[in-house]
Design a binder for these strands. Structure first.
Lengths: 150, 150
DNA sequence: TTTCCATTTAGAATCATTATAAACGTTTGC
DNA sequence: GCAAACGTTTATAATGATTCTAAATGGAAA
């Protein structure tokens, strides 16, 4: 179930982007707001349609917020490169963007498309090999794949 | 269960497909031979080009081995559904097919496209949550993402 | 044989994503 | 304040993996 976090003001989002070396434009703030207000993972196309057909515009805003598809993709790529969000590769058809960049894992149900978090606190992994020379480990992704019971 | 053996004969491949409830056609045998002869993961497009532009045709063979792109995709999907191979979701741009269906994990280097196995023998994981009701865990994928050292 | 059913095929369609090149908006230098 | 310079956004085209479609093929069975 999805909850909305109202504790992200335009100010704090501004600071968040700035702290990650991202110039805060209105489009970037709009996308960041969507990502950080919901406790959910979104694909680029979902974010695009939430902004354009969705009911997420500010109450008092006179301007109809609209961001082009190209900008949505560019911005999510930028956010990921700057470490503001994390890409989750769990479905071959689309990339999910996760506003939680702290270590944690995922559970994925392809039949519903639902991607949920697994806290890293309770999970123990050991025995993973070191990176080969010239490389370093960027991260460890764990995806628990689910299927409908027969 | 099947073991990976570089000396797969046409007969043993035949049996392998039959044991997995797959009718062995010449195209399916050709694709299975590629997958099981190499200790490697391949994407559909790689298999397609190995068959068509690759150096895998018999020198003295009068028959030019050629499998259409549609059949390569259909066959790999069939193999995966029947449990003969496993899909590996590590790169957003393509699905890898892994002839090793026993539990094991992967290391992925996006900069080279190299996907290598991590044996499950040395890896310990605990504390993963159970599947929600109505679902079961199909598998646990671990991908150690690599990056070039700066 | 002739029929039937699965398999294969070429090519079109799809869909997420990326590239292109123009338009736009801000900042900066004067 | 004004204009060049630069980064950002945009519509649109292009890409590339994958899936779909509908026809052709081929083997098994009657």
């Amino acid at each position: 179930m999805e909850t909305i976090n109202p504790n992200h003001t335009v100010e704090s989002l501004n600071d968040l982007l700035t702290a990650h070396d991202i110039k805060p434009t209105s489009q970037r703030l709009e996308i960041a707001r969507l990502l950080f207000a919901h406790h959910n993972h979104f694909a680029a196309e979902e974010i695009f349609s939430m902004i354009n057909h969705g009911s997420h515009s500010q109450i008092n805003s006179a301007s109809q917020n609209s961001v082009s598809k190209a900008t949505v993709y560019n911005t999510l790529g930028l956010f990921a490169r700057k470490g503001l969000v994390r890409e989750v590769i769990a479905d071959p058809n689309k990339v999910f963007y996760d506003p939680n960049t702290r270590p944690h894992y995922h559970m994925y149900d392809p039949s519903s498309g639902e991607l949920t978090d697994i806290s890293a606190d309770t999970v123990q992994i050991s025995g993973l090999p070191a990176a080969p020379s010239g490389r370093e480990v960027e991260g460890v992704d764990i995806v628990v794949r689910l299927r409908r019971l027969e």
